[in-house]
């Protein structure tokens, strides 16, 4: 397992709030989307938020028991906790309807040792897109602002190099240079994020399969596509809200 992964898990176990915030930023939207999907229209946005927070609270209690060496995806584990939080909520609602109280059940964690834990392909795809979006966010915040804007205009907005050069007021070679800088920075951030949040060899290979290890043009194309897909999914979730 990558050193970054173990370091991050250690930070989570040490109750590093910045690490938990980062976790919330990366997985929060996916978690909310998944809960919405499970809720099938019966859960309001506020309930979904509460449930996602309960999921993270449950995660913080059981993070000590998470064993990355067993080869189970962190995201799958998170999904199991979310499912438990949701079923607890549903049981509570049913108990309220009956007029009786109900104590919360304990989280069953025996499954963590099982290699064949079921993987929700769509959910995992969203997790991967969330990782890519996190990498883009980090590149946007940690890299040079102008270079990242150039990359955004060229790749995400699909503008021509001449147009971008005209808007920014620089020459086209400068645009190319800034584009290269931003791309390079993005690659670095992407590899770091993927390494941090990948617990299995399959997860490590996801970026390569998505075309993010290819040459510049393919990298830009794949990144733009993933970014737009992730953004539109988040927008639709916000619109539901």
């Amino acid at each position: 397992m990558h050193q970054l992964t173990t370091t991050f898990v250690r930070r989570l176990r040490d109750r590093d709030e910045a690490a938990w915030f980062e976790l919330w930023q990366v997985f929060g939207p996916v978690l909310r989307g998944q809960l919405m999907k499970w809720g099938n229209g019966r859960l309001g946005m506020e309930t979904v938020r509460d449930l996602s927070q309960e999921t993270l609270a449950a995660l913080s209690k059981s993070i000590e028991r998470f064993d990355p060496t067993r080869g189970v995806r962190f995201s799958t584990w998170l999904l199991a906790i979310a499912k438990h939080a949701l079923s607890d909520e549903m049981d509570r609602r049913m108990a309220l309807k009956r007029g009786a109280g109900r104590r919360p059940t304990h989280l069953e964690e025996d499954w963590m040792g099982g290699i064949g834990a079921a993987v929700d392909t769509q959910y995992e795809q969203r997790i991967f897109e969330a990782k890519v979006a996190a990498a883009i966010r980090r590149a946007g915040s940690s890299g040079d602002f102008v270079s990242f804007e150039v990359y955004r205009m060229r790749v995400f907005d699909g503008r021509s190099g001449k147009d971008v050069a005209d808007q920014i007021g620089v020459s086209q070679p400068t645009i190319s240079r800034r584009l290269q800088d931003a791309r390079s920075h993005l690659r670095t951030q992407l590899s770091e994020i993927v390494a941090t949040w990948s617990f299995t060899p399959e997860e490590m290979a996801e970026a390569e399969l998505a075309g993010l290890s290819a040459d510049d043009s393919l990298f830009d194309e794949a990144l733009g596509e993933i970014w737009h897909r992730a953004a539109s999914q988040d927008d639709s979730a916000e619109a539901e809200h």
Partner: peptide, 26 residues
């Protein structure tokens, strides 16, 4: 919803977008 990476769906010109993104940058 996504900070400085929030998508612009309407046409306002690059300068307005630039100002927004610069203000909401890191």
């Amino acid at each position: 919803a996504h900070g400085n990476l929030s998508r612009f769906d309407r046409e306002h010109g690059d300068a307005v977008r630039w100002v927004v993104r610069r203000a909401m940058a890191d």
